[in-house]
């Protein structure tokens, strides 16, 4: 137990510290790298709690895909660091106000939090019992039976977001020569290659 506690404090401390570094580091690429470190430590905390499926999904989805695209975009930006610092004082009140509003909302949400009536019973005697099932099976069993409509709705929302992003960025330009794979595969050597007998000194 001592080792577990030590590991917990290690993960938690690194997660909080890297979270702070995300907003304080001067270079945005460093920010993203610290964000990735924070994700990692969150995954470590999940593993400590026995939620290994969530931990792996966190790494696969956020670190493996989302943060890569994030890093991709941030690296491509042409940022002038001096200019970035200039408006700091001017925008400070607005930023602080937004932060305060978010904090107030968080406090209100946690203050008005009510636990569903069945939860304490479910916690004392989970169905199926913890020893008999892996949490992948347990999550799947719940997600595809009880919450199947919500799950499908979440999928549809993501699909709509994806279509929206494609519609916003897709533009057909004139005069672009595209490769037509079908036309290319349909070409036969007899039609496009001509074998010529070249006479010496005559050329083709």
């Amino acid at each position: 137990m001592v080792v577990q506690a030590l590991v917990f404090y290690l993960f938690a401390a690194v997660a909080v510290a890297s979270g702070a570094m995300v907003i304080t580091s001067r270079n945005p690429v460093h920010s993203v790298l610290f964000l990735i470190l924070a994700f990692f430590n969150a995954a470590g905390l999940f593993v400590l709690m026995g939620a290994e499926f969530l931990a792996m999904i966190l790494v696969v989805v956020y670190v493996g895909a989302v943060a890569v695209l994030f890093l991709f975009v941030v690296m491509m930006l042409d940022i002038n660091f001096v200019e970035l610092r200039q408006g700091f004082i001017r925008y400070l009140p607005v930023g602080a106000a937004i932060g305060l509003v978010l904090l107030a909302e968080l406090v209100l949400v946690t203050g008005a939090w009510t636990v569903a009536p069945g939860v304490p019973d479910a916690l004392t005697a989970p169905v199926p019992p913890v020893a008999e099932t892996t949490n992948t099976h347990a999550l799947g069993g719940l997600l595809y039976t009880r919450y199947v409509y919500l799950f499908q709705a979440a999928g549809l929302i993501l699909l709509i977001a994806m279509i929206g992003a494609i519609v916003l960025t897709l533009r057909s330009r004139e005069g672009v020569r595209r490769q037509s794979i079908e036309a290319q595969n349909a070409r036969r050597p007899e039609e496009v290659v001509e074998v010529v007998k070249v006479t010496r000194g005559g050329g083709v």
Binding site: E52, F53, M56, V59, V60, G64, T134, N135, T136
Partner: peptide, 12 residues
């Protein structure tokens, strides 16, 4: 229990 996911995560 999540060996495949671990491998997938590390390779990503």
């Amino acid at each position: 229990n999540v060996g495949v996911l671990y491998l997938f995560a590390i390779s990503s």
